[in-house]
Write a protein that binds this DNA or RNA. Structure first.
Lengths: 203, 203
DNA sequence: TTTTAATTTAATGAG
DNA sequence: CTCATTAAATTAAT
């Protein structure tokens, strides 16, 4: 099930968005309490309170989490799995230090929710920071094979002490990056790509 | 955490390498000169140059005009279009002093390219300075919707005389800022946010 | 020094 | 899988 706000985030659609869009594109009168002038900041602000609830998915979720509201269990963060997992096998010292600092001032539960907040609201996986060696190995493998099969990925995962999933994602992102660079160099230097087949397109 | 060079210490490296090699080349015999060491990045690297170029649309003209096709163009400094611009209207004294010193030894042209290199040693977009009105409008829109869709962004871009890209980046940075501030206030006053509804959440 | 515009990339979800 | 998009973590200009 999708988290509340998730749809909003991915489609950029919400009440505020729609109304704002209408206001911005058409100067129609609205039943909303904000006009295009207010949107554009051309009107004197009389109240600081927006007519619509701001769209802040991560805050919404944090509120739910902190309050432990079970009616929104669809928003729950798979905290546990991250807690004990290997995700932070290569966590950086900075974050470790932060956590250690917390220990002195907060309860375990509080620390948990702080850590939870450090990652994203749905328990978005903490961003993996590959070290130099990992990157180098991955790049070298990529040079030879940008579509490594499951066996190679597993092998890499084991050798580099990473989840196979991280490897997979890395290769996906790496392929996307390569593709983008190709697109861009074509755009930047069309004459090269046009001449590469020996065609005389410009004379 | 995987230490640098840790993989070299692995005892099963050779056997593993062999299978990796087989896996990597899959079905075909390797006509390439890659060894397993090179695959795993254990060989001396001779180039530190990234395989792909960054996206620098505003440099397109320069790249094409000045450099033409150059596989290392990401390292190059664009020469033409920013020469006469306002970007360096207020250069700092330190830099000025350096330049004066240089005067004794370098030609005007060399000095120019030195200056250019200082500020353009990487092809980074010149920092946009939003004016007060632009900020105000952006902030007002942000209050209602921190994820404006493409239509609103385009509209804003037109109304504020900015690239849509600037708008997009602004909102990204603005969201990050909001989130950061939220995180910080929770860190500073966890009891407030946790007890704000008077609930006993932890017992 | 602080703030924030710009960049790179890991993670995510839809197609 | 691709592709577009997002947030995290930076870098660098002011």
């Amino acid at each position: 099930m999708l988290a509340e706000g998730e749809i909003m985030a991915s489609t950029s659609l919400c009440a505020a968005n729609t109304s704002a869009s209408q206001n911005l594109s058409e100067n129609k009168t609205t039943q909303c309490s904000f006009s295009i002038e207010s949107i554009l900041g051309l009107e004197q602000k009389k109240d600081g309170i927006p007519a619509v609830k701001p769209h802040r998915p991560w805050m919404d979720a944090c509120t739910n989490l902190v309050l432990g509201d079970d009616s929104n269990s669809h928003l729950q963060i798979p905290v546990v799995s991250y807690e004990n997992s290997l995700f932070h096998a290569n966590s950086d010292p900075m974050q470790e230090e932060k956590v250690l600092k917390c220990e002195k001032y907060f309860s375990v539960t509080e620390r948990l929710s702080f850590k939870r907040e450090l990652s994203w609201y749905r328990g978005r996986r903490p961003r993996t920071a590959f070290n130099r060696n990992q990157i180098e190995v991955l790049e070298n493998v990529f040079k030879m094979n940008s579509y490594p099969g499951i066996d190679i990925r597993e092998e890499l995962a084991h050798k580099l002490d990473l989840d196979e999933d991280r490897i997979q994602i890395w290769f996906q992102n790496r392929r996307a990056k390569l593709k983008r660079s190709h697109r861009e160099s074509q755009f930047l230097m069309p004459e090269v790509s046009m001449h590469k087949d020996g065609l005389k397109l410009f004379k």
